[in-house]
Every structure is written in structure tokens, then in C-alpha cells.
């Protein structure tokens, strides 16, 4: 089976700095995959490069066999990638409703059903539906950002550190929601919170200094405390 998203030997720069120097990742239809690694390893840049927000120097990125390299960001998104950035990317001056509406490409029945599904998933958003997004808490912003990535029939969603800066209680709720989402959607998740990654993902890739250095199933990593210490500095 061909992978849904295939990244091979990806090299990208920001300004003069090489951030990625040979990353290879494959994600199959229906999987939930975690990108692990230390701060500054290049995980966020990988997501940004996939989205076309950072230019690719060399290597390839393919979604369903179609190359994404050189395509404009909006075109990449339209091919079926939902993106949830690290800082949520929520529009403060828009209401929750508008934030979701702006993400909807169509207003047909399936999209509206998706919207209702998302609002059921995050009741907080339903309650704050008519409020300006700038009044939301960090957790609610995260939920809103994830919701926007879900309202379209996306093939895959990229989520960047959803647990960052959130209270443990919220992280737990978020983990549940992501688990629920992963039943129907392919997910590529950047995460430093190992517990959250374990709860959601089945496989992982380890990135260090801009390269993929290891991969395997989350189960294996759970067993191998040596590897955890080496790459994540946890425990």
C-alpha cells in the first residue's frame, strides 16, 4: 500500500539556517503518528515545510502520490491537509462561529454535519459560539483550531504540540478528543508530552538535529526506557 503522506530526504532552510537536513517520514491512511524529539529538533519546521510555509530546498513531499513541493500554501491545504499550528492560529477579531465558518470550503450537508460533530466533540465551543475568539482560554483556542482542521473532508491533519501551555486536566480532555478523532482521521502529531503522544499515536518518528533518527511503534518505545531517556529526556 502506498503511504498517504510521504516525506523523503527533506531539506529546508529558514533564512541562513538549515533546519531540516534529511527527514523521511511515511504515514499510512488511518494512522496516528507522533513526531517526537527535543526542542529545536525541527518538528515544527517539518509541519511548516509540508504546509509550504517554509520553502523546501530538496527532497520530496507527496500526498496521495501528488507532489506538494513548490505549491502555494492554500493549494496544499486544499488538497486535504488540515493544519493546527503551535500558537493555535485563531483569529481574535472573529467570533468562534466565524472562525469555523471561514475554514469551511463548502456549506453543503456533509460539511455542516462535520461542524455539528465537532461542536459535539467540544461543547465549550458551542457555549462560546457567538463570542469573539480573543475571549477564549488557551484550551478553548486549541479546540477551536482543531475544529477548523476537521470541518473539511481533510485526508490528514497536522497538529503541532497541542498540549503546550495547557493545564493537565485540559490535556487529558484533549487526549480523549484526539483519540476519538483518530478513529476517523489520519493524524500527524508533534508532541513533547509523552503521555499524550502515547494516548493518541500508534507509531512514532524521532527527529534530532533536522534528521529522522529512529522510528517504531509507540508500544516498543513504551517498553524501552533507555531510548526514551536518550531522545526525550523524560522519566
Amino acid at each position: 500500500m502506498n503511504p498517504l503522506l510521504k516525506v523523503e530526504d527533506l531539506v529546508s532552510y529558514i533564512g541562513l539556517y538549515t533546519i531540516l537536513q534529511g527527514v523521511s517520514v511515511e504515514i499510512n491512511q488511518g494512522e496516528a503518528v507522533a513526531l517526537l524529539g527535543r526542542n529545536g529538533a525541527g518538528k515544527t519546521t517539518l509541519l511548516k515545510t509540508i504546509m509550504g510555509l517554509v520553502d523546501t530546498r530538496s527532497g520530496l513531499i507527496k500526498l496521495d502520490g501528488e507532489s506538494l513541493v513548490g505549491k502555494p500554501t492554500y493549494g496544499i491545504a486544499k488538497l486535504g491537509i488540515g493544519y493546527v499550528p503551535e500558537d493555535y492560529g485563531v483569529f481574535d477579531q472573529l467570533t468562534v462561529e466565524e472562525n469555523i465558518k471561514i475554514a469551511m470550503w463548502k456549506e453543503d450537508k456533509p460539511t455542516l454535519e462535520k461542524r455539528d460533530y465537532v461542536l459535539d466533540l467540544f461543547p465549550d465551543l458551542k457555549m462560546a459560539y457567538k463570542r469573539l475568539a480573543k475571549t477564549l482560554s488557551g484550551g478553548q483556542r486549541q479546540m477551536l483550531s482543531i475544529s477548523r482542521a476537521l470541518v473539511n473532508e481533510n485526508k490528514i491533519i497536522l497538529i503541532d504540540e497541542p498540549s503546550k501551555g495547557l493545564a493537565p486536566v485540559i490535556i487529558e480532555r484533549l487526549a480523549q478528543a484526539l483519540k476519538e478523532i483518530s478513529k476517523t482521521t489520519t493524524i500527524l502529531l508533534v508532541e513533547q508530552n509523552f503521555a499524550l503522544a502515547c494516548a493518541v499515536a500508534e507509531r512514532y518518528y524521532m527527529i534530532d538535529e533536522g534528521k529522522t533518527v529512529d522510528d517504531g511503534t509507540i508500544e516498543e518505545l513504551k517498553q524501552n526506557t533507555e531510548l526514551q531517556r536518550k531522545h526525550l529526556g523524560v522519566i
Partner: peptide, 25 residues
């Protein structure tokens, strides 16, 4: 309108508007 929404959103985060599949150009 949708145009208005995009304008208000674009003032704050043009990159994110793009990442939602909207051709902001």
C-alpha cells in the same frame, strides 16, 4: 460576508488564512 471575514482574519494572521485553504493573494 466571507470576504469581510477573510479581511479581518488576514489583518491578524495572513499565513493562517492561507493554511485554511484560502488564496489570500
Amino acid at each position: 460576508t466571507k470576504i469581510g471575514m477573510v479581511i479581518r482574519a488576514g489583518v491578524q494572521r495572513p499565513d493562517m488564512v492561507q493554511a485554511l485553504g484560502i488564496n489570500i493573494k
